[in-house]
């Protein structure tokens, strides 16, 4: 059933966020530290475990999860719409410089790390 898929993601989010808030408390940061990442990892482990042990979740259960991931971009669009863009506009140079330089720099690292792999295969 579709609701099972939604429920599985909800379960992962609660467990992951529990870990996130727990680490937050330990670090003295108020908030959810890495909870989303933990939840994603948990979902990867759970889905792969079911895949190998029980042949995976039923198609309808999967549909519940796929519905959510299909909503991810629209939700990001809505999220962009509720930001304080007017205030951000005054410091817009930061966004352009940070985004632009990080992207171009990362691309230049591609052949470097690609090479590192080839060297290790030869060894």
């Amino acid at each position: 059933m579709e609701i099972y898929g939604l429920g599985i993601v909800a379960f992962c989010m609660y467990i992951g966020s529990f870990a996130g808030y727990f680490i937050g408390k330990l670090l003295g940061v108020s908030g959810n530290v890495g909870g989303v990442g933990f939840a994603m990892l948990l979902l990867v482990l759970l889905s792969n475990y079911y895949e190998t042990k029980k042949g995976g979740w039923s198609e309808r259960t999967q549909n519940g999860i796929l519905l959510l991931s299909a909503l991810y971009i629209p939700i990001v669009v809505a999220m962009a719409g509720i930001q304080n863009v007017v205030a951000a506009f005054s410091g817009g140079a930061v966004a352009f410089l940070a985004g632009g330089i990080a992207t171009i720099g990362s691309m230049l690292l591609v052949p470097l790390i690609g090479k590192l792999d080839k060297d290790e295969t030869i060894e």
Partner: peptide, 10 residues
């Protein structure tokens, strides 16, 4: 937002 992001790991 977080609920949807978690689901993309599937």
């Amino acid at each position: 937002r977080d609920y949807a992001i978690v689901s993309t790991a599937f």
